[in-house]
Design a protein around this nucleic acid. Sequence first.
RNA 1: GCCUCAUUAGCUCAGCUGGUAGAGCAACUGAUUUGUAAUCAGUAGGUCACUGGUUCGACUCCGGUAUGAGGCUCCA
Length: 641
Amino acid sequence: MIKITLPDNSVREFESGASSLDVAKSISEGLARNVLAAEVNGEVWDATRPLTADSNVKLLTWNDTDGKSTFWHSSAHLMAEALEALYPGVKLGIGPSIENGFYYDVDFGDHEFSSEELANVEKKMKELAKQKNVYAREDISKADAVKYFEEKEDPYKLDLLEGLEDGQITFYKQGAFTDLCRGPHIPHTGFIKAIKLMSVAGAYWRGDEKNKMLTRIYGITFPKAKELTEYLERLEEAKKRDHRKVGQELDLFTFSQRVGQGLPLWLPKGTTLRERLENFLRKAQQKAGYQQVVTPHIGSKDLYVTSGHYAKYGEDSFQPIHTPHEGEEYLLKPMNCPHHCEIYRSRPRSYRDLPVRLAEFGTVYRYEQSGELHGLTRVRGFTQDDAHLFCRPDQVKEEFGKVIDLVLYVFKSLGFDDYLAQISLRDKEDRAKYIGKESDWDRAEKDIEEVAAEKGLKTVVEYGEAAFYGPKLDFMVRDALGRSWQLGTIQVDYQLPQRFELEYKDSDNSLKRPVMIHRAPFGSMERFIAILIEHTGGNFPLWLAPEQFTILPVSDKYNDYAYDVMSELEEAGFTGTVDARAEKIGRKIRDAEVQKTPYMLIVGEKEMDGNAVSVRKKGEGDVGTMSVSDFLALFKKETAV
RNA sequence: GCCUCAUUAGCUCAGCUGGUAGAGCAACUGAUUUGUAAUCAGUAGGUCACUGGUUCGACUCCGGUAUGAGGCUCCA
């Protein structure tokens, strides 16, 4: 007999060889019907795999992340089975689960697989799912595995096998399909009730562009049809909120072929939104002791040779601009830090001056591969809400902590409540891609980890995600649709101060080297606004809305009064317009609603006589008539950040 | 940059297997003076992304280029 300990610490006894599924059955049949996999001593196993020793068992269902990923991984196998049935001779690459569903990379040989064929594959999958084929695990020797795939002439699986050790290789079989797979899998295909193949895309074998391009088929599956419907509805909602679409509808920004790809043009309303955000941050930074600076959009090539960026990115950047006669070379600035370093150097600094905090909404230009460009989230010219903090080594932790406070204040003010801090450290093996002294790195990495812990941040550590000059703390926020975005970043840097020979006179009269902290709470204005648009669906908080109110006169007899009210509101610092068109009030309301204007003020006979406005709130409707001064008070209260 | 797909009026989209284009909204003109989500009528607007080719004839078929979309790779 073996002892199985469940998460609630209860212990049950079973005969050796019983499976997690048997454990589930002993609790309830209903549970057994929903068990997809089990976590056995911290490792995810097939629910059907025999337990042969005392173990801690956690049963995994659809509600567990690992349960879901097992479900989707098994779905990938199901799709592979359908593909083999429909397209004999296809070669299979890898088929993992992903955040939303799964994919399988397939080599169709000469056949060009088109998205129109997806429905057919889906049908076959449904057919196979109904057969409730069991996913069977089998240990196999490396030699036998190689033999199997040699006979099948599958170069990709053979490639994978090369990296595996004998004795650790398993096959999984369901129905007529056998795959090299570590597992685990759900008990049988019958669990997969709702299937949707989403799209087809190209993907290089092993993600290396030197390798052959395979056809990647994305799909998603669910244990219930209703969940698939809900998922598709969420996708629809995301599509509706796409910042590229909303940006066009609300006249925020545009692109022009003539200007160039990846170079956004900000329209008046978008500019207002952007300036409101900048002013908000400027104010917060002023309070936190930052000083605003302005630097040019280009800089001598030498500046970037000094910073080390030219060596690393020169080839993959916009190429230098040459002066006509002197043969000088300038680069469009890809970042602001070198310029800020020179500002630091502009005069001798004392230890009493530090920290020096230089902030700039600095526009930078980076050559991004054409295929990478995407709306406002990935562009070639963008503005960073940048700042560089020059401090003494003993101030690093405190300064870093203050930056965290600022970033969190920004998130809170803008309604991003769900976030995670990612500590980005060096790659554990490949150290060649980083510059600077080992001891500096060690210290910086340690500082970041400590401050994050002291601030009580929810963190994850990612190795290999550091910048080439130092470790980072990146904030990942989750938006209203549950999608995760990387926003603000804070980076510790010992390298640039050294390369630029930055110094300060310490209390003992010796020259010391300051430490730099790079930080950007928004990241870039462009990207942040894109995320904000999708987070809010274009329904910006009142204090950010480009047009905060529209005054709607019932007829042109009241236009003069409408303009009077507008002046009064504008004088109080708010922005809006009068819709003076010869349209009916219903039409004016509709247009203001479509433009997502937060407040509509309807004025006619009554209002003019009483120096009042009828207030209509977007999405809510009529909220009654009030005097202009009462409305102003309400407005002021609501725009306070 | 690579793979796949797309590009028709300012916007959203029709246009069957080749016979040079159409709607709704927007714009403009006129009428209407309007009370909480679209007033009516008229006018104008397109080298069908660009560029080669096949054809008696190309929006339609084929090649190239540009731009966009979904991926891959990349991201100071």
